[in-house]
Design a protein around this nucleic acid. Structure first.
Length: 337
DNA sequence: CGAGTCCGCCGCCAGC
DNA sequence: ATGCTGGCGGCGGACT
């Protein structure tokens, strides 16, 4: 698998606050609680750890409450449809059914928001609502793989790609099923505030490091590639495939055909971290696989995944996982009889 | 744990 | 001017 790195268009040292920080999330009868939760978790929590303004968050309902939500709850939203008119970002967290046509006032509100320049995001079956507005016509989009065929049939002008986590069309973004909504929301944070801030949000979410080595957001996209990004993408690809490969910064820079200084900068822009830290993370991932799935000794595992010695492996394990390799093996490894 | 060495990283600045 | 690049020097963390 080849991975492609999405680099935010422009990134400064200081976070770039989006002009309109109001995020409106649609609440409807039959609300998908989890998809809603993804948006609320990323955009709706207080973040005192940041010394700059975070997003404002408002839940908007079309119908009068209380409304049903999956999981046996009923909810009432503070906001109304009119609040969508003020939002800089509108999120559709799923939809109550692929056969249920969205009400005309909702579609109008979304089209108006789009014309005003607001960004529209859908999670999972929320793509059906966006498609109903006609705004997805001629665009690439995605949805939950279970609904991809239905979306194609109902909206043949939408180019449905079921093999990606999300699609970023700039002003309109769609994501695949359920948890891919988190990836998309984090992607937007990355666009707005940069990779480092997005990583901090991800860390607080305690998202499994397996998804991306715990750092950057990858998009698997069979799209026209950006040549400028290609060199770095290839490099990250190589590190992931063979983390044991010992390489100095100089080696990496040569492989990526850029100077060391530029590599460091581009690396941070794309991943929010440094090469050494990234490689250590990749090696740790590899070490965990080996500890889980093989009977190799700690010493062998250390050698195999590129740490110089068992001591170094222990050090990184302690540091990143607050656990020793042998504890990890005992807990997650194969039963040794 | 500490001393010594190494080098990864980043601020700064100059050049294109 | 602006934006990106690359070289230099130094600090601090990592490895011995």
């Amino acid at each position: 698998m080849t991975i492609f790195v999405k680099i935010p268009p422009k990134q400064k040292r200081r976070p770039r606050t989006p002009a309109n920080r109001l995020v409106a999330v649609l609440v409807y009868d039959g609300l998908c609680s989890f998809e809603y939760g993804c948006a609320a978790e990323v955009f709706g929590l207080a973040r005192p750890e940041f010394n700059f303004d975070w997003y404002q968050f408002i839940a908007c309902a079309v119908e009068r409450g209380p409304l049903r939500a999956t999981g046996g709850m009923s909810v009432t939203a503070r906001g109304r449809l009119s609040d969508i008119a003020k939002a800089g970002t509108v999120i559709i967290p799923g939809w109550r059914g692929v056969d249920v046509a969205p009400a005309a006032p909702l579609l109008l509100a979304l089209r108006t928001a789009h014309a005003r320049g607001a960004r529209l995001l859908s999670i999972c079956s929320g793509a059906f609502v966006l498609a109903a507005t006609g705004l997805l016509d001629g665009m690439r989009a995605t949805t939950h793989w279970r609904y991809a065929q239905a979306l194609r049939e109902r909206y043949p002008r939408v180019e449905v790609d079921a093999n990606v986590l999300y699609v970023d069309n700039g002003q309109i973004l769609t994501s695949a099923g359920s948890a891919a909504g988190l990836d998309l929301c984090l992607h937007l944070v990355r666009r707005d505030y940069g990779a480092e801030i997005a990583n901090q949000v991800a860390r607080r979410l305690v998202i499994a490091p397996h998804r991306s080595g715990g750092q950057a957001q990858f998009i698997q996209r069979p799209m026209p590639r950006r040549d400028a990004d290609d060199r770095l993408s290839r490099l990250l690809d190589g590190i992931g495939a063979n983390p044991a490969d010992p390489a100095t910064i100089g080696d990496l820079a040569r492989r990526a055909t850029m100077s060391e200084r530029t590599l460091l900068r581009r690396f941070r822009d794309a991943t929010g971290t440094t090469p050494a830290d990234w490689i250590a993370q990749a090696r740790l991932d590899r070490a965990r696989e080996l500890l889980e799935g093989t009977a190799l000794s700690i010493e062998d595992v250390a050698r195999e995944c590129g740490f110089g010695s068992a001591m170094t492996l222990r050090h990184h394990f302690r540091h990143k996982l607050a656990l020793s390799p042998s504890e990890y093996k005992g807990r997650f490894g194969k039963k040794s009889s």
